[in-house]
Design a binder for these strands. Structure first.
Lengths: 231, 231
DNA sequence: TTCGGCGTGTGACGTTCGTCACATCGGAAC
DNA sequence: GTTCCGATGTGACGAACGTCACACGCCGAA
């Protein structure tokens, strides 16, 4: 999928515009509160009034949506440099997703009123435009990965390929990805169930497509993964 | 789902900021090409270089993504006043979706270079920020409707409820919605197959939940629909 | 050490739904 | 009228996978 790759590559190049935002924040004397969180802390939940944005300085957090029956779908994994909740704050209503930390995180918080002030500055509006633009591209991309493949194995294959592009360490032909997610979390990323993820990973291991070690996954047969990702 | 409703309501209130954009376009002497299209015309396709944006003046168009095997998922139905392709143009690469007219349409076209000029004007950047912000909120909302319900009947029920909120005419307790989509198109909106849509609609008709006339659907039992939409 | 909790592996079962196949229907063109 | 063609209706079949149930291994706490 060439389009998906292009979008994915664009992502990392522009991620640094967090710095633009922070520069603007400093220039406009807006206070930003620095906090530390442990694993599993909910920064904000879907439906709460949008108090302000969180800027993820270190760590990772899962952005997810939840159905009334408790079904959870992870829309994206935020990494250091990501801005969380911006669109909800601009929209002025409530957060449209839930953000939960995956590991220890350091965040800055900028309150809604201060952000709106910031938007009045031309550079502020342009910076936010860039951030929203990237967010929209990523969500479109993610929607493609989740809605187009009809089988769970295709979605899992795509996820592994995505990971190998982002975090992959190239080790003698095969790529190794540090896995730090439980099967449950993977299931929520690909809209499937925990058991299915367990079974699919085991099956891929048996077929020599991947190799599962404690703490990492080794991709042995990228071509096979790409073939699975099409279906 | 209270959140979805709030977002949906916000949509119509802000849709008029097309006018802001057009005002800016006129103020900055940007040329905009006016065109007429028939039904089924593809304005642009996923993967093409993003030449510029289309502004839908009249008519409706389907924004969709396509898999390599030809599977199509309709992300949203653009209506008069919607701006198409903005994020792809700002991103500078290629269109990330395909837009096809559903009926006769009138569009304005603004080329990429002119749009980038426009973005330098403070009011231009703010207008685009508003448009992208709404687009992101709608896509998040749509993602929720497509990813959270696991069954096709739940997604169809949600779609009918959405329609009744947008286009519904209240006729003596029941709401009537003008339907102008084929089962095939509905299937692409809810990520299902044509046959499943036919069967589900027929089943709902038998169970007195809806009543299908030629050209319109009457919702007789909204509570039943809402119950189905949860699953 | 024992315990308890969490993550993982795996079997059995049933539902959903996509797919193929075909019939029918309705409108537009002629 | 006839002829087409796209849209719709319906049956049969099977693959995918969600769910329930339970077992095992690991690790930190007591």
């Amino acid at each position: 999928m060439p389009i998906a790759e292009k979008i994915e590559h664009a992502r990392d190049e522009t991620r640094t515009d967090l710095h633009s935002l922070l520069r603007e924040i400093r220039a406009s004397n807006v206070s930003n509160l620095n906090s530390l969180h442990g694993r599993g802390k909910v920064l904000f939940s879907e439906g709460e009034p949008a108090r302000g944005i969180y800027i993820l300085r270190t760590g990772r957090a899962a952005v997810s949506i939840t159905s009334t029956e408790g079904r959870v779908v992870i829309l994206r994994m935020a990494e250091a440099g990501d801005v969380l909740g911006l669109n909800s704050v601009l929209g002025g209503s409530s957060y449209d997703a839930t953000v939960k930390t995956i590991g220890p995180c350091r965040t800055d918080f900028v309150a809604r009123a201060e952000l709106l002030d910031l938007m009045e500055r031309p550079a502020g509006a342009k910076t936010m435009l860039t951030i929203l633009s990237r967010e929209l591209a990523e969500l479109t991309n993610r929607t493609r990965s989740l809605l187009l493949p009809q089988t769970a194995s295709a979605r899992l294959a795509r996820l592994l390929l995505d990971w190998s592009r982002e975090n992959g360490l190239n080790t003698s032909g095969a790529t190794r990805i540090e896995k730090s997610f439980t099967h449950e979390e993977i299931a929520q990323m690909i809209c499937s169930s925990r058991e299915t993820v367990t079974r699919l990973l085991a099956s891929m291991g048996r077929r020599q497509i991947i190799q599962i070690n404690s703490g990492s996954i080794l991709i042995r047969d990228r071509a096979a993964l790409e073939a699975m990702a099409v279906g």
